[in-house]
Amino acid sequence: MKDLLEEIVKALVDHPEDVKVQAVEGEQAVVYEVKVSSDDIGKVIGKQGRTANALRTLVRAAASKTGKNAMVNILS
């Protein structure tokens, strides 16, 4: 999931070299921390958070069979 998220985010930004995704595993949840260039943060969040929410929905759907909750945090 981490690689996939990284590839999708790279396709959405101007500075793919600055994209870093880290998975922080908790007992009940996995948190994916997505780091992007400060120039790109708007592109990853999108209008009214639409892109960020799309990433969250996709990650959650993919994680649904693992029984764990999955979250996405976007940082710059």
């Binding site: 999708i8 396709a11 959405l12 892109t51 799309a54 929905t57 996709l58 759907a61 069979k65």
Partner: peptide
């Protein structure tokens, strides 16, 4: 069903992301 989601929510998300990726690149 897993990737369509409730009321097609996951599917709508896939469509949105794919359109964003294709239009942009």
């Amino acid at each position: 069903a897993q990737f369509i989601g409730k009321q097609g929510k996951v599917l709508a998300t896939l469509q949105y992301l794919l359109n964003a990726i294709l239009h942009r690149n």
